Computed example of a mutant assay.
Amino acid sequence: MLKLNKIHHIAIICSDYEKSKHFYTKILGLEILQEVYRKERKSYKLDLALNGNYVVELFSFPNPPQRVSRPEAAGLRHLAFEVADIEKALSFILNNNIEAENIRTDEYTGKRFFFFSDPDDLPIEFYES
């Protein structure tokens, strides 16, 4: 059997680079490791870390096609982040004028969580630790 070490990163293509860069760095608080503009592709690549660990590559491309996200389309469903205080996390999201679902409880783990979306409507989940 193949032995995987860990998830290296998640790649996200955005439609508005500056808006998504703001969201992932200023709202979610991911740290910028490196930002590169690839002139030949008219594309930015932003490497982002969480607590010093490389986790997300944010890409921009001219006119990327829309991807169906809802209702429950096949493929990547959402990106989830663990948080210590679910109420505080929800309050922070709402105070930044981002719509979010109500807090729900995972029927199997008893942990609480809620969903909201990034600027391109990619579902993001905050799940309590």
Rank of each mutant, 00 (worst) to 15 (best):
N96C: 09
Q66T: 15
Y44C: 03
Q34Y: 09
K21H: 04
R38H: 15
L79P: 00
R67W: 11
K39T: 11
P123N: 09
Y54C: 08
I13A: 07
K45T: 15
V56L: 04
K42W: 07
N5P: 01
I32S: 06
V56M: 04
Y37S: 04
E31Y: 04
Y54A: 10
K39A: 08
P123C: 08
F81G: 06
I103P: 02
E35M: 03
F23L: 02
E82I: 13
E40C: 10
K111E: 09
K26E: 00
N63L: 12
E57V: 10
L90P: 08
N53C: 09
R67K: 14
L28C: 06
I12H: 04
I124Q: 01
I10P: 04
N102S: 12
K42C: 08
K88I: 04
N51S: 11
L90W: 00
I103F: 00
K19W: 10
Y44P: 07
N97V: 13
V83N: 06
I93H: 03
L33V: 01
D16G: 10
Y44L: 06
E72F: 11
D16P: 11
I124Y: 00
R70M: 13
L28M: 05
S20K: 03
N102K: 15
L4Y: 04
E125R: 03
R67M: 10
L58I: 02
G75H: 06
E125V: 07
L90Q: 07
F92H: 14
N5Y: 03
T105D: 05
D118T: 00
E101Q: 15
A74E: 15
F116G: 03
R41A: 12
K19R: 13
Q66G: 11
K3I: 02
F61M: 13
R77E: 12
F81A: 05
S129K: 13
I86R: 11
I98K: 09
F115E: 03
E128K: 02
H78F: 01
K26N: 09
I32A: 04
F81N: 08
K45L: 12
R77N: 14
G29M: 03
